[in-house]
Simulated scan of single mutants.
Amino acid sequence: MLHTHSSLLASLAHATMVDAAAPSGPGSATMAHAPLHFEQLGLSPIALDLGFFTIKWYSLAYLVGIIFGYWHLSRMIRQPGAPLAQRHAEDLFFYATLGIILGGRLGYAIFYGPELFAHPQDLLKLWQGGMSFHGGLIGTVLAIAFVSWRNRLDFLRVCDYIAPCAPIGLFLGRCANFVNGELWGRAADPSLPWAMVFPGGGAVARHPSQLYEAGLEGIILGTILFVLFWKTRARWRPGLLMGTFACGYGMARFIVEWFREPDAQLEDFAHATGLSMGQWLTVPMIAIGVLLIVRALRRPQVGVTVQSLPQ
C-alpha cells in the first residue's frame, strides 16, 4: 500500500515538472497543435479505376452538378408561373453544359494561363485541369441567352430559375479541389486546428480554402437561394434570384481570396494591384448583382396568372 502511494506521488511530481517545463505565453498554442497533413487523410483524385478506364472526382463533380441542376430545374418549372417548359429545360441542359466546359476552359486560358494559346491543342486537354468559374458563368449566360432568344423566353426570369441550381455544382467542385489537394490556401498559423500541410505547398501549414469556398459558395449561398425560391415570392420579381446569386457568389469569392494562395503565375499581379485576379473578377459580379436586386425590388411583381407554356 505504501509502495502504491509512493508511485502515485512520484507520477504526480513528474507531471508537475513536465507542466512547469512546458512553454507558456503566446507561443505555447503553437506547440500544442501540430498541423494536419493532407497525406494522412488517404484521399485519391481517382473515384473509379477499372484499369482501362478511370473517373476522377473532379469530373464526377461536374457530372453530378449538371445532372442535379437539370433535376432541380425540372421540379422548379412545375410550379405556377414558370417562364419555361420542360422542352426548354432540355435545351438549356445541353447548351449550358457546353457553355460551362468551353467557357470554363477558355476563361482559364484568358484570365490565368495565356500561355495555353501558344499551344491550342492543350486547350482540349481538360483532364489536365484548369477551369475558370467566371469563364463558365459567361458561357452559361450565353447559353441561356441563346435558348431564350430562340424560344422567345424572358431571359432574366430564366436566369432566376437557373441560379438556385448552381450552388450544388460549386460545392461539389470545391470538394473535388480539396480531394485533389489543389488550390490550397495561404500560410496559416500552425495553431489553427484545421491548418493543413498540402503536397506541393511545402512544409507550411495552410488554410484549406477549398472547404471555405465549398461552405460559402455552396452550402450558404445554396440555402439562401433555395429558401428564396421555395419559401418566398422571390421568383415573381425578375432578376432577384439572379442578382442574389451574383452578389452572393461575388462576396463569398472575394472573402475567400484573402485565404486562397494566388496562382503562381499571377503572384506579381496580386502584389502589384493589391487584389488577386479572382477578386478583381468578382467586383463586376457584385455590382451587377446589386443592380439586379435593387431593380427587382423597385419594380412590381409579375402577374401571378401566367399562361401555361406548351410542353
Rank of each mutant, 00 (worst) to 15 (best):
F133R: 00
L84M: 14
G42Y: 03
A22M: 12
L12H: 10
A47V: 04
S74L: 12
S28T: 06
L228W: 05
A61F: 13
A13S: 15
F133G: 10
Y112V: 03
A287H: 06
R298N: 08
L123I: 08
H33C: 05
D154V: 01
A195T: 01
A82M: 06
C247T: 11
G139Y: 04
T282Y: 08
L36A: 12
E261F: 09
A195W: 10
G248S: 09
T273S: 15
C159M: 12
D263Q: 12
I55C: 12
G200L: 05
T232V: 06
E261I: 07
L123Q: 04
E261H: 04
E267T: 15
L98A: 10
Q301K: 12
I162S: 08
M277I: 13
G239L: 03
G202Q: 04
G51P: 02
D268I: 11
F53S: 06
A20W: 04
W127E: 11
F198M: 14
P167I: 00
Q279C: 08
R233G: 02
F254W: 10
Y95N: 02
L183N: 10
L211P: 05
H5D: 13
P284Q: 11
W258N: 13
S44I: 03
L291A: 15
S11V: 05
M285E: 15
W236L: 15
R174D: 03
Y112I: 03
C175P: 06
S132D: 04
L309P: 08
A214L: 11
K125M: 14
I168N: 05
G81A: 03
A272M: 12
P80N: 04
A15E: 13
M131I: 07
E261S: 06
G107I: 13
L92R: 02
F53G: 07
A166G: 01
H33W: 01
C175E: 03
Q86D: 04
I110S: 00
L297I: 08
I100E: 03
A85F: 05
L8P: 07
T223E: 00
A21P: 01
V147A: 09
Q121I: 14
V227H: 10
I162F: 14
M76S: 09
M31V: 13
G169V: 02
G289A: 15
R206G: 02
